[in-house]
Design a protein around this nucleic acid. Sequence first.
DNA 1: ATGGTGGTTAGACCA
Length: 274
Amino acid sequence: MPFTVATWNVNSVRKRLDQVARLARDTAIDVLCLQETKVVNELFPVDAITDMGFPHQAIAGMKGYNGVAILSRRPLSDVRIESWLGRDECRHIHAKVETGTGPVEVHSLYVPAGGDDPDPDANPKFAYKLAFLDALAPFLAARAAGSLPVVLTGDFNVAPLESDVWSHQRLKRTITHTPVERDKVQDLLAGDDDGSEGWTDALRRYVPADEKVFTWWSYRAADWRAADKGRRLDHIWVNAALAPALSFAAVHDTARDWPEPSDHAPVRAVFEIP
DNA sequence: ATGGTGGTTAGACCA
């Protein structure tokens, strides 16, 4: 049986309930990781999402901003919420999912956006984003090298490759595509610098590195598809223990055309667990 | 250099 994991920054789960249901109907998804749920746990739409086929839900929400969740058709165990740099901002939750032949650890991560000014000395939000990525590094390096299969998903708010943005030249001084954050994310992807194995960038296994592919298009563009000024901010990374099982990955960009869309499209990865 | 849109929530703040 294939095992399918998707990630989606929904920009308010309550505003996007119909779209989440539509995604669940249109595609086979076992585990759906959400970011920017923007709701406290007490008001999370547990029943509506149960009715969509995801009775198992791990949630970490706060009022107004941020918020992550893992929705699953199968039981979740060992749910943990991670707080980085001492801030309880509901940006990282992970849990184990039983696949039938063993557990897979699934992560839903929401990296700080970083504001507008790409000078970390002048812009504390960007300094925070860079420190957040640094804080993640040892945690992710341990997961990358571990024997437990891990799939790391989320809105990383970084487009690491030149082909991850509509114009590398125009965006290289724009936060999400500055050299310093691209380098940090590519270092995380590569794993520890002791020669151990890193992560597999699932989508880039199926889309060549010189081909543009995006997961986010600003609300501010009148005709998002015609302009196609997008960026690849949402990622699915797979550790070495799980990488052999990866069989497919794609951006579900039709979701960006649905009524009242999120500005992000879902990314989906399929595994053939032996 | 500026402004364009959307969500939360009641004036900004965040993206």
